[in-house]
Amino acid sequence: MKLKATIIDIICLFYILLFVYAAVSKLLDFETFRVQLGQSPMLTNFKGLVAYGVPSIELALALLLIVKKFRIPALYASLGLMMAFSMYIIAILNFSDHIPCSCGGVLEQLGWTEHLVFNIVFMFLAVIAIILESNNISTIHEKNIKQYIKT
Protein backbone atom coordinates (compact mmCIF):
# COMPACT_ATOMS: atom_id res chain seq x y z
CA MET A 1 0.00 0.00 0.00
CA LYS A 2 2.80 2.41 0.99
CA LEU A 3 4.95 1.31 -1.95
CA LYS A 4 2.02 1.90 -4.34
CA ALA A 5 1.52 5.42 -2.94
CA THR A 6 5.24 6.16 -3.29
CA ILE A 7 5.26 4.98 -6.92
CA ILE A 8 2.24 7.20 -7.69
CA ASP A 9 3.93 10.17 -5.96
CA ILE A 10 7.13 9.67 -7.97
CA ILE A 11 5.24 9.42 -11.28
CA CYS A 12 3.29 12.59 -10.44
CA LEU A 13 6.57 14.35 -9.57
CA PHE A 14 8.01 13.36 -12.97
CA TYR A 15 4.92 14.77 -14.69
CA ILE A 16 5.09 17.99 -12.64
CA LEU A 17 8.77 18.42 -13.57
CA LEU A 18 8.04 17.76 -17.24
CA PHE A 19 4.99 20.01 -17.54
CA VAL A 20 6.39 22.94 -15.54
CA TYR A 21 9.73 22.76 -17.36
CA ALA A 22 8.08 22.55 -20.80
CA ALA A 23 5.57 25.34 -20.05
CA VAL A 24 8.15 27.75 -18.56
CA SER A 25 10.59 27.10 -21.44
CA LYS A 26 7.85 27.91 -23.96
CA LEU A 27 6.83 31.07 -22.11
CA LEU A 28 10.46 32.26 -21.77
CA ASP A 29 10.92 32.07 -25.54
CA PHE A 30 7.32 32.70 -26.50
CA GLU A 31 8.00 34.42 -29.83
CA THR A 32 10.17 31.53 -31.05
CA PHE A 33 7.49 29.08 -29.89
CA ARG A 34 4.85 30.96 -31.92
CA VAL A 35 7.08 31.05 -35.00
CA GLN A 36 7.77 27.32 -34.71
CA LEU A 37 4.03 26.61 -34.49
CA GLY A 38 3.51 28.79 -37.56
CA GLN A 39 6.01 26.63 -39.46
CA SER A 40 3.89 23.54 -38.85
CA PRO A 41 1.37 23.05 -41.68
CA MET A 42 -1.12 21.41 -39.28
CA LEU A 43 -1.06 24.13 -36.63
CA THR A 44 -0.45 27.29 -38.60
CA ASN A 45 -4.15 28.28 -38.53
CA PHE A 46 -4.44 27.77 -34.76
CA LYS A 47 -0.98 28.97 -33.73
CA GLY A 48 -2.34 31.72 -31.42
CA LEU A 49 -4.71 29.35 -29.63
CA VAL A 50 -2.12 26.57 -29.33
CA ALA A 51 0.64 28.98 -28.25
CA TYR A 52 -1.40 30.16 -25.25
CA GLY A 53 -3.35 26.94 -24.69
CA VAL A 54 -0.55 24.36 -24.40
CA PRO A 55 1.56 26.09 -21.68
CA SER A 56 -1.64 26.99 -19.75
CA ILE A 57 -2.87 23.38 -19.83
CA GLU A 58 0.58 22.08 -18.82
CA LEU A 59 0.77 24.41 -15.81
CA ALA A 60 -2.84 23.67 -14.79
CA LEU A 61 -2.20 19.92 -14.92
CA ALA A 62 1.01 20.27 -12.89
CA LEU A 63 -0.99 22.11 -10.18
CA LEU A 64 -3.83 19.56 -10.25
CA LEU A 65 -1.36 16.67 -9.90
CA ILE A 66 -0.30 18.07 -6.51
CA VAL A 67 -3.85 17.93 -5.09
CA LYS A 68 -4.70 14.36 -4.17
CA LYS A 69 -8.42 14.89 -4.83
CA PHE A 70 -7.78 15.81 -8.48
CA ARG A 71 -4.99 13.35 -9.12
CA ILE A 72 -6.98 10.75 -11.09
CA PRO A 73 -8.60 13.28 -13.49
CA ALA A 74 -5.25 15.07 -13.82
CA LEU A 75 -3.51 11.79 -14.65
CA TYR A 76 -6.17 10.98 -17.27
CA ALA A 77 -5.77 14.49 -18.73
CA SER A 78 -1.96 14.15 -18.71
CA LEU A 79 -2.27 10.84 -20.54
CA GLY A 80 -4.63 12.47 -23.05
CA LEU A 81 -2.24 15.39 -23.61
CA MET A 82 0.73 13.06 -24.14
CA MET A 83 -1.39 11.00 -26.57
CA ALA A 84 -2.30 14.17 -28.48
CA PHE A 85 1.39 15.18 -28.67
CA SER A 86 2.29 11.66 -29.84
CA MET A 87 -0.36 11.67 -32.56
CA TYR A 88 0.95 15.05 -33.73
CA ILE A 89 4.50 13.60 -33.84
CA ILE A 90 3.29 10.56 -35.83
CA ALA A 91 1.55 12.93 -38.27
CA ILE A 92 4.73 15.06 -38.56
CA LEU A 93 6.88 11.96 -39.12
CA ASN A 94 4.57 10.69 -41.87
CA PHE A 95 3.35 13.77 -43.67
CA SER A 96 5.81 16.62 -43.18
CA ASP A 97 9.40 17.40 -44.06
CA HIS A 98 11.64 19.38 -41.75
CA ILE A 99 9.64 21.09 -38.99
CA PRO A 100 11.32 22.23 -35.78
CA CYS A 101 9.95 20.79 -32.55
CA SER A 102 8.12 23.43 -30.50
CA CYS A 103 8.65 21.47 -27.30
CA GLY A 104 10.54 24.04 -25.25
CA GLY A 105 14.00 23.94 -23.70
CA VAL A 106 16.30 20.95 -24.06
CA LEU A 107 13.41 18.78 -25.28
CA GLU A 108 13.91 20.59 -28.61
CA GLN A 109 17.26 18.84 -28.99
CA LEU A 110 15.46 15.48 -29.27
CA GLY A 111 14.61 14.25 -32.76
CA TRP A 112 10.98 13.45 -33.57
CA THR A 113 11.51 9.69 -33.14
CA GLU A 114 13.30 10.10 -29.79
CA HIS A 115 10.50 12.42 -28.75
CA LEU A 116 7.91 9.79 -29.61
CA VAL A 117 9.76 7.21 -27.47
CA PHE A 118 9.96 9.77 -24.63
CA ASN A 119 6.19 10.36 -24.87
CA ILE A 120 5.43 6.63 -24.92
CA VAL A 121 7.47 6.16 -21.71
CA PHE A 122 5.50 8.97 -20.03
CA MET A 123 2.18 7.56 -21.27
CA PHE A 124 3.16 4.17 -19.83
CA LEU A 125 3.98 5.84 -16.48
CA ALA A 126 0.59 7.60 -16.48
CA VAL A 127 -1.22 4.30 -17.10
CA ILE A 128 0.68 2.67 -14.19
CA ALA A 129 -0.19 5.60 -11.89
CA ILE A 130 -3.89 5.50 -12.92
CA ILE A 131 -4.12 1.75 -12.25
CA LEU A 132 -2.35 2.01 -8.88
CA GLU A 133 -4.36 5.05 -7.78
CA SER A 134 -7.66 3.37 -8.80
CA ASN A 135 -6.67 0.25 -6.82
CA ASN A 136 -5.77 2.45 -3.84
CA ILE A 137 -9.15 4.16 -3.93
CA SER A 138 -11.08 0.87 -4.14
CA THR A 139 -9.03 -0.59 -1.24
CA ILE A 140 -9.84 2.47 0.90
CA HIS A 141 -13.56 2.17 -0.04
CA GLU A 142 -13.57 -1.54 0.88
CA LYS A 143 -11.92 -0.76 4.24
CA ASN A 144 -14.48 1.96 4.95
CA ILE A 145 -17.39 -0.35 4.08
CA LYS A 146 -16.00 -3.15 6.30
CA GLN A 147 -15.55 -0.68 9.16
CA TYR A 148 -19.08 0.65 8.64
CA ILE A 149 -20.53 -2.91 8.71
CA LYS A 150 -18.61 -3.71 11.95
CA THR A 151 -20.04 -0.66 13.70
Partner: peptide, 24 residues
Amino acid sequence: LPAFAFLVAIGIAFAADANSSSQI
Protein backbone atom coordinates in the same frame (compact mmCIF):
# COMPACT_ATOMS: atom_id res chain seq x y z
CA LEU B 1 8.20 17.82 -2.59
CA PRO B 2 5.86 18.89 -5.44
CA ALA B 3 6.59 22.55 -4.61
CA PHE B 4 10.30 21.76 -4.79
CA ALA B 5 9.76 19.97 -8.13
CA PHE B 6 8.00 23.13 -9.41
CA LEU B 7 10.98 25.28 -8.39
CA VAL B 8 13.53 22.84 -9.83
CA ALA B 9 11.66 22.73 -13.16
CA ILE B 10 11.47 26.54 -13.32
CA GLY B 11 15.19 26.79 -12.46
CA ILE B 12 16.19 24.27 -15.15
CA ALA B 13 14.01 26.08 -17.71
CA PHE B 14 15.72 29.41 -16.95
CA ALA B 15 19.18 27.80 -17.06
CA ALA B 16 18.44 26.09 -20.40
CA ASP B 17 17.04 29.34 -21.81
CA ALA B 18 20.25 31.19 -20.90
CA ASN B 19 22.29 28.58 -22.82
CA SER B 20 19.95 28.50 -25.82
CA SER B 21 21.45 29.74 -29.08
CA SER B 22 18.31 29.73 -31.26
CA GLN B 23 16.87 32.99 -32.47
CA ILE B 24 14.31 34.28 -34.93
